[in-house]
Write a protein that binds this DNA or RNA. Structure first.
Length: 254
DNA sequence: ATGGCTTATTGTATAAGA
C-alpha cells in the first residue's frame, strides 16, 4: 500500500501534473493540500476517469485539502472537532483499515504575526484531536504540509533560517508533541541522503541549487510503524513546466 | 540574497505563500 502527500499550490493549475503522477505512481492514497478551489470546481469527474475516488474540503483562493484513492473512502470527516476554523485545512477518512488524516498546517507568516499564534493554537488543537482519534483508530497516518522543518538537517541553511517560521523552537516543540502521541516521521525511519527536501522557493533558482526545506511529512502511528517499507521524496514533478513549489512524499507500507 | 517567483482575484495592483 502506497501513501502519498503533495501540496499542489492550486489544483486548477496542477491537475495535469496530478493526473500524470497518479497514472505513473498509482498511489493507494494521495493527500493534496492547497487545492485553492471551492468544492463545486473540484475535478471529481476527471479523477474518476483516472480511477480515483475523492473527498475534498475547499475554498476559493486559499487552503483546500483532498484525499484521493482508488479504494473506498469511508467515514469522511472535515476539520478539527471543537476547533472552529473558517479555513479548510483538514480532511480525514478510513481507507483499507487505516485512518488517513490530511492536513495543511498553517504557515505562520512570521514569528511576530497573529498568524503565528494561530498556527501554534491550531497545532495544539490538532494534537488534542489526534490523541482522541488514536484511541478510536490505532492504525493512523497523518499526511500533509506541516510547514515545519523538524530539525536543522531538514533545512538547506539553518543559519540563514534562524528566527524564521517553519524552523522556530515552538513549532519544533509542537512537532515533538505529535511524536509524543506515538506518531513517527516515516522519512526518518530509513537512511536518507543529506539535503533531502520537499519544498524549494520559486525564486533564486531554489530548486536547481537545492535551497530547500523538508516540511511535507507522513507520520504513522505505532501500530503502523513496523509496516513501513520505504519512504522517499519524488523530485520529478518539481522539474516539470509550471510546477508546484512542493513535491510529493511517498510511503510504502506492507 | 527578506525577495529576484507564482498563485489568485471580478484584477491592471495587492495579498499570500514558505
Amino acid at each position: 500500500m502506497k501513501l502519498a502527500t503533495w501540496n499542489v499550490n492550486s489544483l486548477n493549475v496542477r491537475l495535469p501534473h496530478v493526473l500524470e503522477w497518479i497514472a505513473a505512481e498509482k498511489p493507494d492514497v494521495l493527500c493534496l493540500q492547497e487545492t485553492k478551489q471551492e468544492d463545486a470546481k473540484f475535478p471529481y469527474d476527471a479523477l474518476k476517469e483516472a480511477g480515483y475516488n475523492a473527498i475534498h474540503s475547499g475554498q476559493k483562493t486559499y487552503n483546500g485539502v483532498a484525499i484521493l484513492s482508488p479504494h473506498d473512502i469511508e467515514n469522511p470527516a472535515f476539520g478539527i472537532p471543537e476547533f472552529a476554523d473558517e479555513q479548510k485545512r483538514v480532511v480525514s477518512a478510513d481507507i483499507n483499515g487505516i485512518r488517513i488524516v490530511c492536513a495543511y498546517i498553517p504557515n505562520g507568516q512570521s514569528l511576530e504575526s497573529e498568524k503565528y499564534q494561530y498556527k501554534l493554537n491550531w497545532l495544539q488543537a490538532l494534537t488534542n484531536h489526534l490523541a482522541a482519534e488514536l484511541q478510536q483508530h490505532p492504525r493512523l497516518a497523518l499526511l500533509g504540509d506541516y510547514n515545519i522543518a523538524p530539525e536543522d538537517r531538514d533545512v538547506h541553511d539553518p543559519k540563514a533560517w534562524e528566527g524564521q517560521v517553519l524552523v522556530s523552537e515552538p513549532e519544533r516543540e509542537a512537532f515533538r508533541k505529535l511524536q509524543a502521541l506515538g506518531l513517527h516521521d516515516s522519512f526518518r525511519l530509513f537512511e536518507q541522503e543529506e539535503g533531502s527536501f520537499s519544498w524549494w522557493d520559486y525564486r533564486m533558482a531554489g530548486f536547481r541549487r537545492n535551497l530547500g526545506l523538508r516540511i511535507d511529512h507522513i507520520m504513522v502511528s505505532d501500530a503502523l510503524k513496523d509496516n513501513c517499507q520505504r519512504c522517499w521524496i519524488d523530485k520529478g514533478p518539481r522539474k516539470l513546466e509550471r510546477p508546484s513549489d512542493h513535491t510529493p512524499v511517498i510511503l510504502e507500507l506492507s
